[in-house]
């Protein structure tokens, strides 16, 4: 299977322009025979939306822009980020998985960060689910940016049977030291390596680049194989279109070698979580 990660810099608040750019990359991906194309978090709108959230929100079932993307996605699996107006006046930071012109799944960000430089919960509702869903490429699961840093989220996708984990990100770079790139990129790479290895799944992480109000999105999108090996990494802080052939047989190979999935105990973990969450003590 061939995977494409579009490490782009969306225009802030300019839906039409962003849809055009998505279409440009969809066509490019198809020309390169990609089976899956992933865009970053909020790729249709940009990230620092604040009060623009309501102006850029879409209902996937009643949106001509969505219809354009559905039409264009014929022939490949397409993942992108957008502001979803699920019910009137309730907005989510969401990601769509389109397959052959149909919406296969929508993930709503469960952990919108609200601390320090982040203020997502002021503007967005919180999703409630981590679903692993069947796709022609295998069972997949999606997370949006900070979701991925809560390792319980990855576990839920793993327990749900995901073999392909897709992370859409708009992670601002922070911290600079002697390495190339922002210090914060290491956090994502560490998680990518760990989760891919211990969930024996492919890990596709697509982060955006560009500046919004001085925040520099760090780029450095990557792919890890189910053995926790880095297959490819995009450059930091500059646009990139990453293409990579991956061998889905590796899932079987690594799950045989490292039987974390076979020996997993989701019911025991559930019981223990129930005990912990029911506990009266602080």
């Amino acid at each position: 299977m061939k995977v494409a990660l579009a490490q782009i810099s969306p225009s802030l608040g300019d839906l039409e322009n962003n849809v055009d750019r998505h279409i440009y990359f969809i066509r490019k991906a198809k020309k390169n025979k990609a089976d899956l194309l992933v865009f970053p978090e909020l790729s249709l709108t940009g990230y620092t939306l604040q009060d623009l959230v309501e102006e850029t929100a879409l209902n996937p079932h009643q949106s001509s822009l969505f219809d354009r993307l559905k039409t264009e996605s014929q022939g490949l699996s397409l993942v992108f980020g957008f502001v979803e107006e699920k019910e009137k006046g309730i907005f989510y930071n969401s990601a769509a998985f389109l397959e052959n012109g149909k919406i296969l799944h929508i993930h709503r960000k469960v952990f919108p960060p609200t601390f320090g430089m982040f203020e997502e919960k002021k503007f967005f509702g919180e999703g409630k689910n981590f679903h692993s869903f069947p796709t022609p490429l295998g069972k997949a699961g999606m997370m949006i940016c900070r979701d991925f840093l809560h390792y319980g989220a990855s576990y839920l996708l793993f327990a749900g049977g995901a073999e392909i984990i897709i992370v859409l990100s708009a992670a601002p770079g922070r911290g600079f030291d002697s390495r190339e790139g922002f210090a914060s990129s290491e956090m994502w790479e560490l998680m990518g390596q760990t989760i891919s290895r211990f969930s024996t799944s492919f890990l596709f992480y697509c982060n955006r680049v560009g500046f919004e109000d001085g925040k520099s999105f760090a780029g450095g999108s990557f792919i890890y194989n189910p053995g926790g090996e880095l297959l490819v990494k995009a450059p930091y802080a500059q646009e990139n279109f990453l293409l990579r052939e991956v061998n889905l047989q590796e899932i079987r190979r690594y799950r045989k070698k490292n039987p974390f999935k076979r020996e997993d105990k989701p019911s025991l973990i559930l019981q223990q979580l129930q005990r912990i969450t029911n506990a009266k003590e602080v």
Binding site: F176, D177, E180, F211, G214, S216, Y236, Q238
Partner: peptide
Amino acid sequence: PKKFNPSFVEKVLTSFIKEEL
């Protein structure tokens, strides 16, 4: 303040100037 990679800082700051303009 730790030692830093000046080429990377230069890259970020010049892209910032270019992009903002």
